[in-house]
Amino acid sequence: MTFEPFRTLTSRTLVLPEENIDTDQIIPARFLTTTDKNGLGEAAFHDWRYGPDGVLDEGHILNSTDTGSHQVLVAGDNFGCGSSREHAPWALLAYGLRAVISTSIADIFRSNSLKNGLLPVVVSPEVHKDLLEQPGREVTIDLDAEELRFGNHVVPFSTEPFARRCLLEGNDPLGVLLNAMPEIEAFEEGRAA
């Protein structure tokens, strides 16, 4: 199995300036009883997009933005903190996002995102401020060159080399791990001895 490679993405930004957007905001726990990965787009930011009465808040930016042309989320500091639920990147991808930009992105969320083709991009506070102030601007994320480009800016970012290679080539890390089986077995035998 391979997944869709991620090389270069040019799209507009959707800005959510709130800090510490946790995974309970990204997908509330009551949607976690699913046994499937699909169909979570409706659950993405559900309680931000719908009132307590279940009525869609049409004025909310998450409801009024065309997701086809706005695939890059620019979010406040420390995005994705909280639980390890991989349902969070699944929901964001199903909602239509392909990349998240912030000044810091929580550990497990970051790792989960990379495994699903949602690219986390960490930028400096200055660049971040620029992006927060101009929602909807067009940006290009070039994973091969590890560059974020917008206007006259060329901003380098870094991605774990292995995850980057898997994304660029559409390689599945499980396949690579399975190839290491002789080493894994030798390790286990050595320990049993």
Partner: peptide, 13 residues
């Protein structure tokens, strides 16, 4: 803690 993809990795390897 790990995500579900990694749960799969550990189950398999």
């Amino acid at each position: 803690g790990i995500g579900t993809t990694e749960v799969g990795h550990v189950l398999a390897t």
